[in-house]
Design a protein around this nucleic acid. Structure first.
Lengths: 343, 343
DNA sequence: AGGCTAACGGAAAGCGCTTACGAAAGCGCT
DNA sequence: AGCGCTTTCGTAAGCGCTTTCCGTTAGCCT
C-alpha cells in the first residue's frame, strides 16, 4: 500500500492527468508552452482532486512570492487601518496576498518585521510605520531595505523620506497650515495645541505648518502653548485637563489628530464647556467617526486610503534610478466644532 | 570569481563560522545537538553577516511554518480590528507571524482566503468572517478545513459553530437580552430595533436575546418594529430616518451594533431630538469611541480582543476529539444615552 | 587504564515546486 | 521526400533549508 500522504502534490495531479510534472506546473501557473486544451484539462483534474499548490515550494523554486508585506504601527489605529485598506484594495486587484505586520510603536519591532518580510521573500514591502527615533535603527533599516532592493525587492514608504526608497508623503505641513489659518480666520488668537510626541516627523511637520500660518499672519507662534500627551483619545483627555488648568483663557484647541480631539471634546462636555460656543476644537486626519460626533469635528482630511493604494502601486512599478516621491493632497473639512471666539 | 548571489544562504554562514550546514541550521533554529557555546558563536556570525533565513525554504523543509492566518471580513470594522489585535497579541507572544486576510463581505472570497492560507501551510487558521449565507459555500469551506485539520492544521472560528471546529462564541443572545432588559427596566415599552441583515447568525442571536427579554417580561415582541439597513453608520442614519418617519412614537431605539447607534445619534442630533431626553439610544459592541460620544453610548460590551486571543490559543492547543466551544462573556455598559422615557 | 555510553558534527536525502534544456512531433517549403 | 523551423512536452537540476543516519570524539565507570 502506498504511503499515505497528507496532502496532494503536483505529481499526483500530473499522474491523474497523464502528463509530466512540468506540464502540470505550466498548466496551473498559466505559463506558456502548453496547448490551451491540455492546460484546461489539467486544471480541471487539479480542481476536481482538490489540489492546492504549496506556496512555499512555489516561492522557493520561483524565487519570488505572490505576496506583499505591509508594516503598520498599530492595526487598531484608524490612521493605519485606512492605509491598510488602500493597500489591500490594490493587492486584491493585482491578485497579491497582503501580509500585514504591526510593530506596536516599538521601532525595534519595526526592524524585525522588515527582516521577516524580507525573509519571506515578499514581492514588495510597504512601510507605514512609526518612524525611527533612533538613528542607528534607521540606518539598519535603510541597509536592510537597500539589500532587499538590490535583490529585486520593491519598497515604498508612507510618511517618511529618509529611507532612500519611493515615498508617498502626506501633506502634513500644508494641512497644519490650512487648519491653523481656518482658526485664525475665525478670529481666534489665543489657542492651544494638543500634540503627540514632537519627535515624530508627522507631528513635527504638522506643527511647522501651523507655525507657518502664524508667521504668514504676522503672529508670534512661540507664545502658543503646546501640550504634549499620548496621540490617543486618552492622551487628548489628559491634554484637555491640562489646558483647562494651565491655559484657561484659550478660545480654541487644535489637536494634532482626531483621536486626541475626540478625547478633548469628551472632557469639555463633562465640564459643561460649550463647543464651539466657548472653545472651538479642531482635529486632524478626518477619521470616519469625525462627522458623527457631537459636535461634528472640523478637521483636515488626509487621503489615507489613497495613500496606501498609491504606495503599493508605486512599489509595484519598475524601480526608478532615484527614489520617487508622491505627495497626497489634503482637504480642510469645516464642520460644527469650530466657530468664531465668544465676543 | 564566484558567482554573485543576491542573498546569503545558510551555507555562507556555515562556511564563515567553520561548521557544517547541519550544525548551522541546528544552531539557528535552537534545536538540540549543538553545544551552547558553538551555537552562540554561529548565531553571532550569522547576525554579523546580516543573514536572514529564507522562510519558504524553511517551511518547505520543515513542513510547517511559524505563522498563522486570520480571516476577517473587513479590517476597517472596529469589531474585526479588535479581534485582530487579540490574535496579534497572542501571535507575538508565541513568536508567530500573523497573516491577515480580509474577505470584504464576499463569502466566496472567504473561501478563497481559506484556500490560500491552507496552501501556505500556516500552522493555524482563525476565522472571524462573515458567515456563509450560502449552504454550498459553507459545505465547501467545511470540507476544506477538515482536510486541513487532517493534515495537522489547527483551526478556530469566532462567532460561528457550524464549521465543525473549535469555536469561540460571543454571548450575542445573552447580551441582547441584557440590553433589552435594561431598556425595559427603565420603563420603555415602545421601542424600535435597528438591525443589519438578519441572515447573519450574529444578528439573529442578538435579536433572539431581545425576544427572550420581552418574553420574560410578558411582553409581545412581535409588535416591535425592526428596521433593517446596512450594519454601518450610514445604515444607522438610514434606519433612524425610517424610524422617525414610520414609528414616531418610539421612546427608545436599540441598535444592534454601535456603528448603527452612532449614525442614529447623529441623525437625532441634526433633527434636534434630545437623547436620552426624548428618545433613548442603545448600541451593541462597545467600540472604543462609544464612551467618548455625546451622549456617551449605553451598550453591551463583548470582549472582542479577548475572543481573538482565546481563538488563537484554542487553535494552538492539542486538537481535541470533538470541537471545543468557549463562550466569551458580555457586560452591560450603562452610559448617558439611555434614561427613562419622557413622562 | 580500557571499554562503554553519550553527545556532537557531517554527509546526504529530500520537502514540492519551477524552469532551463533537449527530444519529439508537426508544419510549410524547396 | 528531406530540410529547417516552430511548437509541445518530458527529464532533471536545482531553490535553501531541515533532519535522519552515521562516524567521531569526549566523558565516565569499574
Amino acid at each position: 500500500m502506498a504511503k499515505r500522504r497528507t496532502t496532494l502534490r503536483l505529481q499526483d495531479v500530473a499522474e491523474h492527468a497523464g502528463v509530466s510534472i512540468a506540464t502540470a506546473s505550466r498548466s496551473l501557473s498559466g505559463a506558456s508552452g502548453v496547448s490551451e486544451p491540455l492546460a484546461e484539462r489539467v486544471r480541471e483534474v487539479a480542481k476536481r482532486m482538490g489540489y492546492v499548490a504549496n506556496l512555499h515550494a512555489r516561492s522557493l523554486a520561483a524565487g519570488t512570492s505572490r505576496s506583499v508585506g505591509l508594516v503598520v504601527r498599530e492595526i487598531g489605529d484608524p490612521y493605519f487601518t485606512e492605509i491598510a485598506s488602500g493597500v489591500l484594495r490594490v493587492g486584491a486587484r493585482e491578485g497579491l496576498m497582503v501580509q500585514i505586520c504591526h510593530t506596536g510603536r516599538d521601532p525595534r519591532r519595526e526592524l524585525d518585521q522588515i527582516r521577516t518580510l524580507v525573509a519571506s521573500r515578499v514581492g514588495a514591502i510597504v512601510i507605514a510605520g512609526s518612524g525611527f527615533l533612533d538613528a542607528r535603527l534607521e540606518a539598519a533599516a535603510k541597509a536592510e531595505l537597500q539589500a532587499y532592493r538590490a535583490a529585486g525587492g520593491r519598497v515604498a514608504v508612507i510618511g517618511r523620506h529618509h529611507l532612500g526608497v519611493d515615498a508617498v508623503l502626506p501633506e502634513n505641513a500644508a494641512g497644519g497650515r490650512a487648519i491653523a489659518e481656518h482658526l485664525l480666520a475665525l478670529g481666534h488668537r489665543r489657542l492651544a495645541i494638543a500634540t503627540g510626541s514632537r519627535a515624530l516627523t508627522t507631528i513635527a511637520d504638522r506643527i511647522s505648518g501651523v507655525a507657518e500660518a502664524f508667521g504668514a499672519a504676522g503672529l508670534d507662534f512661540t507664545t502658543v502653548p503646546q501640550v504634549e500627551a499620548e496621540f490617543t483619545r486618552a492622551g487628548g483627555k489628559e491634554a484637555a485637563e491640562t489646558i483647562l488648568a494651565e491655559h484657561p483663557g484659550v478660545t480654541a484647541v487644535l489637536a494634532l489628530n482626531d483621536d486626541m480631539a475626540i478625547g478633548i471634546l469628551s472632557v469639555f462636555r463633562s465640564h459643561g464647556i460649550a463647543v464651539p460656543g466657548r472653545i472651538s476644537v479642531a482635529g486632524f486626519d478626518d477619521v470616519a467617526v469625525a462627522q458623527d460626533l457631537a459636535p461634528s469635528l472640523t478637521t483636515v482630511r488626509l487621503p489615507m486610503t489613497e495613500m496606501g493604494a498609491l504606495a503599493l502601486e508605486l512599489a509595484l512599478k519598475e524601480p526608478a534610478a532615484r527614489p520617487r516621491r508622491r505627495v497626497a493632497g489634503h482637504e480642510l473639512v469645516v464642520r460644527d466644532s469650530t466657530a468664531p471666539p465668544p465676543a
